[in-house]
Simulated assay, not measured.
Amino acid sequence: MTGTFIVIEGLEGAGKSSAVALVNDFLVKRFPQREIVNTREPGGTPLAEEIREIWKQPRQEPMAPITELLMVYACRAQLVETVIKPALERGAVVLGDRHNLSSVAYQGGGRHLSEQVEALSNITLGEFKPTLTLYLDIEPSIGLERARQRGALDRIELEQLSFFERARQCYLVAAENDSAIVTIDASQPIEAVQADIISALEQSL
């Protein structure tokens, strides 16, 4: 594959949406002749978006952790096979709002399903991984307060603080052991966060 796959990761309230917009603008200016494809997970295709709606919304029937895990990997498999890989084969730059590292953190750490995450990752992705991941690190309590200020919380955002603390630890361990993951301190003023993101892009690309 000749394309480049960049992913933005982080807990709720870390500023992923702002980071995605910033990185997209950077890519458009840096690579004016290349196709830029934006994706999000879970979702990113008509089928995956339908699953996302079920996956995200609070409901009376509790969702079993393994059900949550299987649904997110169904979305991911569909997105990777029908959108991301074809785009990379065309030489595009793919910018993803979340990817497999989210499942390592949220379902692996948060739901205590690390073995199942590894197994499903091997089945659906194999050796496929992003060229670069920017992980926006933030204290969970700060991120959740930011999320509350945005409005109504979704099913995941309603989880206990301990869930997000476990997820953050998984993010930090993964970043420490993978040179393709760059950690950005998302608790800084936004100007400093943006400067660190641009610096990481300049160095990596």
Rank of each mutant, 00 (worst) to 15 (best):
T131L: 04
T183W: 08
N38Q: 12
C170I: 02
P130T: 02
T45D: 02
T124D: 10
C170T: 11
D97T: 05
L27D: 00
T131V: 04
F163M: 10
L158Q: 15
C75N: 06
L120N: 05
R52V: 01
K29F: 07
S179D: 14
S114M: 14
F26L: 01
A175C: 02
R30Q: 13
K129M: 08
P130I: 00
F31W: 11
P130M: 01
T133D: 03
L158C: 15
L134H: 00
Q60I: 12
A48W: 04
S187Y: 14
G110M: 09
A119V: 08
H99M: 06
E159L: 09
P65G: 01
I142P: 00
Q78V: 08
I8H: 00
G143Y: 03
G108D: 08
T39V: 08
G108M: 06
L11M: 11
I123G: 03
D25N: 14
S18D: 06
E127P: 10
A147F: 10
T45S: 05
L125F: 03
I6L: 09
A74P: 04
V104H: 12
Q149L: 13
G96V: 01
I184R: 00
A147N: 12
Q188I: 04
I51H: 00
A174W: 14
I197M: 07
L125N: 03
K85L: 11
S17R: 10
I36W: 02
E89H: 15
L22S: 01
G43D: 08
F164W: 13
G91C: 09
T124Q: 11
E50H: 15
V94I: 05
G3H: 09
R40S: 10
E157V: 04
E53Y: 12
H112K: 15
L144A: 05
E49A: 09
R146S: 04
L136K: 01
P58S: 02
I198P: 10
L158T: 15
F128S: 01
A74Y: 08
L132D: 06
G43S: 08
V94K: 07
F31D: 02
E61F: 09
E68F: 08
R76M: 04
K56N: 15
T82V: 12
Q107C: 08
G44Y: 09
Y135H: 13
E35Y: 08
V173A: 15
R150V: 01
T183Q: 15
V23C: 00
W55Y: 13
F128D: 01
I123P: 05
G143K: 06
G126K: 12
L101I: 03
R98N: 05
E49L: 07
A64C: 02
I123L: 15
K56A: 15
P32K: 10
V37L: 09
V104E: 14
E12C: 10
P46E: 07
A200P: 13
I142Q: 03
V117M: 03
M71N: 07
H112C: 11
C75K: 02
V83H: 09
I190C: 09
K29H: 14
L88S: 02
S141Y: 13
L134G: 00
R59E: 12
I190R: 14
T183P: 07
L11C: 07
D97F: 06
T124P: 00
G108P: 02
A64Y: 06
Q149N: 14
C75I: 03
N122M: 12
G91K: 12
L70F: 09
V20W: 11
L69C: 01
E12P: 04
T2W: 11
Q78W: 13
R76S: 05
E118G: 07
Y106E: 07
D97C: 04
L136Y: 03
